[in-house]
Design a protein around this nucleic acid. Sequence first.
DNA 1: GGCAAGCTACCT
DNA 2: AAGGTAGCTTGCC
Length: 564
Amino acid sequence: MNIIHGLPNVPITKETVASVDIEIFGQTKGKLHRPTGEFACLSIGIGEDVFVIQDKNDLVELFSRLAPAKYFVLHQSLYDIRQLRRWIKFDRRKVWDSLLVDKLLWGGYFNIHEFSLSDLSRRYLDVVLEKETRQSFEGMNYMSEDMIQYAAKDAYYTLRIYEAQQREIEARQYDMNTYWMIDEPAIWATLDLQPVKVDVPQWLSMAKEFERRGIEMEREMGVNVYSHVQVKEYVRKLSGVKLDNTAAETLEEAKTKVGAEIIDKITLVRMLRKASSTYGLKWIENNVEEDGLVYSDFYVVGTESGRMSSSNPNLQQIPSRRIPEYRQLFISRHGKMLIADIQAQEPRILAYLSGDKKLLEAFANKEDVHLSVTRAIFGDPDIQKSDKRREIGKMINLATSYGLTAQGLASRLNIPLEKAEEFLSQYFSRFSGVTAYIDKMRSVANRFEYVETISGRRVWVNRHNFQAENNAINSPIQGSGADMLKLWMTEFWEWCKNENVMYPVTMPIHDELVMDVPIELSAKYKQGITDTMQSAAHKLFNDMPFEVELHQGRTWAAKKETEE
DNA sequence: GGCAAGCTACCT
DNA sequence: AAGGTAGCTTGCC
């Protein structure tokens, strides 16, 4: 490694691959999505050279010199690009994000949290990157010789990791379609996600009320409902029933023996505590910036199947079903919240991947697939949408992609095992294509140790893991859904650029895009979001029909409102 | 007191 | 029963 101070003085051609790594003084921990701190240096690795730039005024000249390069290699590029955008215009260019590439190569093989630069250095290069020097950037305002060494090393090893990944791709014959079609473009759409606004005063008063009720009830009961030790003791004392654990499901099952009143009370107080601890004052303090805006960290590849994830705060887990109140406090700042979700996305993907004739037919006829499955199971074509039995069909549709068993179904539907077995045998005889798909995925995983999503993302399946069979069935479905959402998001981002309108997406949530749009542009956005979903669906699933469901209203809860 | 594991709860 | 993130309690050093 040759460390050279200042701008690169080597020729940059369209074959050049340059690694880029930024270092920042005093970056606030846990807020990596909000670029703060002072510019420390930028290291650029080219071949064996590492150029270290300590003057941010050189950045414009630097990137103009680097412009012809083939790839910019960055590890977790979202971070560096967000920082760079504080000082220079940094538009879309070809980024080789060694973090995203590695998750593509090794999704399901390594723990999803073990893809840091030091993890990759250890795995590919047998090099241990020391952490101490990096931490020293926090309290510093000048570059010591050690720190320059450290910064240069990061860029140097990032480039070596790129080379190692190239060798891996070659040796294992990876098709990089997923990366260039899905993940890399999604970087740019993710960078431009908008903050979402919450109603802070209302939130605080609501959380306070939840807290008050929770404390009052807990005091009355004389038990800490978050302590499984105390809850077990409490239940035993009042009813004599000994519980193995105190999970909601277990409590629900024990209801007849213990008594509904006792169980309901525990469940309610737990909900109140959840509402006030996870989503109370601290949530606001930790996550809300001025004007009530929330900036979450969204990760382009957050799961082994390729789904995105969100943290600080996790906007993909804001209560919806049991505590709907919080979504009402995610409010529009431009006019209207517009929520677009893909109807029955995973069942459609299952239909496509399995080629099951009956399922495909149901979708082609625009049937309600949960109802169709219900009718098939009960052998009764007259069952209507309002019929309670539809829940069973819905459950089976969902469970199919998770690798359902009769036991699982019986416990979730609270029905006898024989009944569940009967439903499943009806289902599998009627939808024989699905049966064949399940068998095929199990044998593919067993033979190759990986399965693939529709775009070609490989998801490794460990034969020795007890979940192996279910992963084999689920990963292609869940992962193809993720492919589709990211492609949709990116196509919509491009559409907005072409139409010269603001990119209004605030939250990508697995099968749903939540937008905050000006009222006068609402119709235009609706058209754009629908068209781009159709385009993304067509690119991945040919003529398989998909449909967007649109909701709009003052708040994120518009999904549950009837407002037009 | 600090840290990791266990448990529970929230989402699609 | 698939994939996540987060907070509190418990157990151990």
